[in-house]
Each structure stands twice: as C-alpha cells, then as structure tokens.
Design a protein around this nucleic acid. Structure first.
Lengths: 123, 123, 123, 123
DNA sequence: GTGGTCTAGACCACA
DNA sequence: GTGGTCTAGACCACT
C-alpha cells in the first residue's frame, strides 16, 4: 500500500481526508473485499500521523460498514461488499459531486452547454 | 436583502457558509459593486447568529478583496470589481466544482458519457 | 488651503489623520498664528468627509490649545503660539518618532551606524 | 516564554500589540523557526487576556506567514523562514520607522544633522 | 447607527 | 491538551 496523500494544512480534517481516500480505493476496486488494510501503527508512521487519527478514520469506516476489524489480526475490507453495493458506493460519491456542481452552475446562471464544454477540456 | 440559508448543524462552519452565500450573490450579479451589505447587527438578527460570526465572514470577504469596509458607514461590495473580475470569480467557483467532480470520476473509472447523462437528468 | 491627504481605508482613524496633518502644518510654519482654518463644511466637502469628523478634529486641536474657535467667524490658529512653543511642538512630534525608531533598533540589535547609513540614504 | 508587555489602555488594540511583540521576537531571533509559541490558553492566562484575543493575534501572524498552526498540536514559528527572510523582516520593521521619522523631519524642515544628534543622545 | 475590540465561557474537533 | 467555532453581550470609536 498505499499511495495516500494527506494535506496536513488544508481546511479538511486529516481523518476525513483519510476516510475519503480509503473509500475511493474501495469504490475504484483498488481495495477488494477481504483485503487487509495497513495496521494503524504502520499507516500512522507512513503518513506521519498520530495513531489516534488513523484509528478514528478506521472507526468511521467500520461504522459505515466498509471495513471490519478482526481482533488481533487487523482491519479488512468487509467481505460482504458485493459488486452491487460497491457500485452504489461509487455512484453516491460521484452523484454528490455532480449535484453540488450542477446546483452551483444553476445559481450562477451558467448554461449546461458550457459545463459540458469544460468537462470535455478536462476529460 | 437577502435570502440566505444557513445550516446550523452541518459540518461546514456557519461563517464559511455565509461567505459562500455572499460570494455567490456577487458572482451571480445579485449584489453589484458599490452595493451595501446588510449591517453586521442586522444580518445577525435576521439569521439568528451572533454579530461576531457575521463579522468574521465579512472580514474574510474583505481579505479576499470582494468587499470593502467603510468605518461607521457599513460594508460594501468592492467598487473595483469590474465585469471581467466578476466573470473570473464565477468561473473559479464553478471550475473548482467541475475539477473535483471530474477527478473523482476518473479515479472511479467512470466514463465521461455517464457523467453527462447524469448532468442531463439534473439540468 | 490645503493639500491634505486622508487615507480612508487605513488603520488610523480619519479624524486622527486630520489632526496630525494640521498639527504638522502649524509646526512647519505653513499655518501661522492667526491664520484661519477652512470652515468645517468647506473642508468636509473638500475631503469628502462627514462634517462631524472634521469637527471632532478641530475640537481636539482646540483642546490641545493649538486652535481657537471664534464664534460666528471660524476657527483660527491660536494667536498665543509664540516661536518657542511652536518649536517645542516640532520637537515633540519628531522626538516621538526618533524614540520609537531607536527603541526598535535596540530591540533588533541593529547598530547605530547602520541606522545612520539608512538615514543618509533617505535624507 | 516570554516577557511580553501589553498596555491594556493604550490606543493600540491589544491584539495588535501582541502581534508586534511576537514579530519582534522572531525578527530578533528570540524565537526561531520551528519553535512552539505558547498555547492560546496558556498565553491568555499569562497575560490576563481572553483566549479569543490571543487567537486573533496568532491568526494574523499566520496570515502573514510567520507562524503555522498544526491542529491539535499548537502554533509554531514557520519552518520556512530562513535567515535571509528574517533579516528582511528585521529591515522592514526598522525601515518603516526610519521612513516615518525622516518624512516627519523633512516636513518640519529639521536638518539631518539635528536628527543624528538626537539619535546620539539616545543610542 | 456603523464597525471594532474585548471578555467570559461553552462546546466541538483534532491529534 | 490543542486549536476552532460560536454565543452573549459590554463598551468603544467612527461617521
């Protein structure tokens, strides 16, 4: 693992950035059900974070059912994530961004056509 | 004024929500250069916020050059915002959302066509 | 009169800037004992200030004995300012700046010689 | 820390005095890059100020790039202040005072020689 | 009546 | 234990 990038000085809390990064890896398939996440200590050292911060992220991911702690073994991506739920996760993440973007455009009286042109420039 | 909506219990600080709302009003042309913003006290009462919270928002907007405080008179949209800078502001706001969204889609291996379909459903 | 420059957006209150400007004109001899100052309304229009602000400045100058209001006639530089008191005023103004500057230099461990070199560059 | 002196009743706002004091400590080398500033609460108690007032000072120093906040850890003198930038800071602080003083002297028709004599009396 | 400063202190988020 | 947000409200300075 794991190619995670954390911005220590941004407005977004570190633990939230970490949650988001892991969520993205699960949604994109980079992490599959059953895969072991790095240990809390390992990841904390690797990212120069406080272990408490990493733990907080893992807790939240567990609360959302995306990962599962196996006592004494480590933290793993939930086995009961099937393709359909992962797809749903993917869509939730993307649709939220699309909603925000479209709402913004509407408020600023920016036409749909202009949005699509900008997307074409980027993708 | 002013039709501002504030979510008291979201993750985003109230003063940042207020900044964003006012920025949008300037970008959309609802507030024009030279226009007077509501007085700190007035807006605080209207939104059921503490005057300090409103002031914090106004200060940040001033720091960004969007408004200008005239002591004893009030806070005004900067006179030196011309049409071009306002257009730039508009684009900055939108492009940031588009960038986020496109990056997310790329990471999740979601095709451009799918994004555009979703936009069509919403706009 | 009067070549007064006021910075509407600085940290220093307008009325204080005006006091300082007039004080300087008296100390430098540009305004002599007996000279009439511009009327409050006149100066307020000229500098785009609120008459109350100008009045406040004149009041303070009067409190310090530098000007004298003659009811119905206007505001005048005090007749009883002799050369010696004006000289004293001059020194007070300058010495305060010198004190500040020297104290700063001392705290920053900057040598006297360096100060003098900088003064030579400027004067 | 820290030998800071605050004048509760002067014309200069407390938070600005504090900014100035800390800036001087950085410029003089009393505080070095990486050094931890006192915690907001700690300094507030020590100076009998409200935590908000101390925070306001720290924020401004951060805005100017002199200090850096590490959430949950404290506020630190910026690591990226090298000797050259600190020297620049030093000069900026002093030169501003010198400029003011020289300009005043010029306006009052006071000769350079007289200024230097006064400096000799003081330093 | 406007913004600016400051206090007192609660409560939250973060590391 | 650290900073961040927010409220309540006093008091001041400015126009």
């Amino acid at each position: 693992m794991m190619l995670v990038t954390i911005n220590q000085h941004g407005k977004i809390p570190i633990f939230r950035q970490l949650i988001q990064e892991i969520k993205m890896k699960i949604a994109s398939g980079e992490l599959s059900p059953g895969d072991k996440l790095p240990s809390i200590r390992e990841l904390a050292v690797y990212l120069s974070l406080n272990p408490n911060t990493v733990m907080k992220s893992y807790r939240e991911l567990e609360r959302e059912g995306l990962v599962k702690t196996k006592m004494g073994k480590g933290v793993f991506v939930s086995e009961n994530l099937n393709e359909s739920t992962i797809n749903q996760l993917k869509k939730n993440i993307l649709f939220q961004k699309i909603d925000e973007m479209v709402n913004t455009a509407k408020m600023l009286n920016i036409k749909k056509q202009e949005i699509i042109e900008e997307i074409n420039k980027r993708y």
